[in-house]
Design a protein around this nucleic acid. Structure first.
Lengths: 193, 193
DNA sequence: GTCTATAATTCGATAGAC
DNA sequence: GTCTATCGAATTATAGAC
């Protein structure tokens, strides 16, 4: 009863690896990089701590695997230009509410240089690329993307990390209504001076 | 040559205490709560590690003393209503560029529950109080303050913590020009729906 | 592949001499 | 007030039996 595929037979260890990654994301998201211990992650995944080392080499290696993140930005050129801001906020909120990977990355980026570097890469590459779809000035494009990141990461930071009461209690639809015009202006507004 | 004051003669240990706090703020700002060690802080302050414990009792006690922070918000009722956003961003940027206490607090709030609680208190109390100067609906006031916090903390997070290139390279005046209208709308804009 | 045992550090905190 | 010495706990990581 070997699997039908010829080269990629799913090893039994794949389930273990997945369980480790799931537990790692939870712990890194809840506790940050240094407080999340390999022992605790292994206990959550109900495996031996030494298996984590065997599979991922080190704590840094485990984090690198657990914090893989794709913003999954839509193609902004196919969005009605007047609704860019709304589409973006809604996308980010939806993307984060169901996936704690970004929270893990956000918390870890505060204290771990490697995580900060990864966060820079994600926003510099993925978001800047999406913004570059309209506008030709590279410096201005980068600035627009940076401003969008500042509001969008501030939203995540206050809602998921610091948990400021008003930002936690406000419904997603109302947050979208407030914040969409901000992103709209950062993306398409006339540069100052 | 005793000091002239009758009850408050400055003890020699005051200089030591100040040196400890200065070093602690630097380390907490640079490394976060868990990576900043008492030993390293003491070495920076050129004193013995045990003195830190003697003066501040514990690492948490040291952090509590080092992360005391006052936003020093101006009285918003004496600001021309149309310039509220600009005044606020400029104030925050100026307040942070010269004082690393907020960076220490911001970084620590990501992983330390006590620091997060303090950050909640600062923005809930000081910022909400300032916003309450205009508007009578408490829920709306809290929401306005939360939104301002989201943009302002997002600015600090991307510029000082993650150090996104565009946010680091952009001059303060240009950041103010971009972000002021955002805060202006969060403060005085018509609520959606 | 899985687990036990443990090495090698490092940290916060304490005790006590001077 | 200041310093030496050290405790006890916790961590990542490794070595090796089965």
């Amino acid at each position: 009863m070997t699997p039908s595929a010829q080269s990629a037979q799913p090893r039994r260890s794949d389930a273990t690896r997945a369980a480790i990654l799931r537990a790692a994301r939870e712990r890194f998201a809840a506790d940050g990089y240094e407080r999340a211990t390999i022992r605790a992650i292994a206990a959550d995944a109900q495996i031996d701590p030494s298996m984590v080392m065997r599979y991922y080499g080190s704590k840094e290696g485990l984090f690198a695997a657990a914090a893989e993140f794709d913003l999954r930005l839509p193609d902004l050129t196919s969005v009605p230009p007047a609704r860019l801001g709304e589409v973006l906020v809604r996308h980010f909120l939806a993307r984060w509410e169901g996936d704690e990977t970004l929270v893990a990355l956000l918390r870890a980026a505060s204290t771990n240089p490697g995580a900060a570097e990864r966060m820079r890469g994600i926003f510099a590459d993925q978001l800047t690329a999406a913004v570059a779809a309209f506008g030709t000035d590279p410096a201005l494009t980068a600035r627009r993307a940076g401003l969008v990141a500042s509001q969008v990461l501030g939203l995540a930071f206050t809602r998921y990390i610091v948990r400021l009461r008003p930002m936690v209690d406000t419904a997603p639809d109302e947050l979208v209504a407030w914040i969409a015009p901000t992103l709209q202006r950062y993306l398409t507004g006339t540069p100052p001076s």
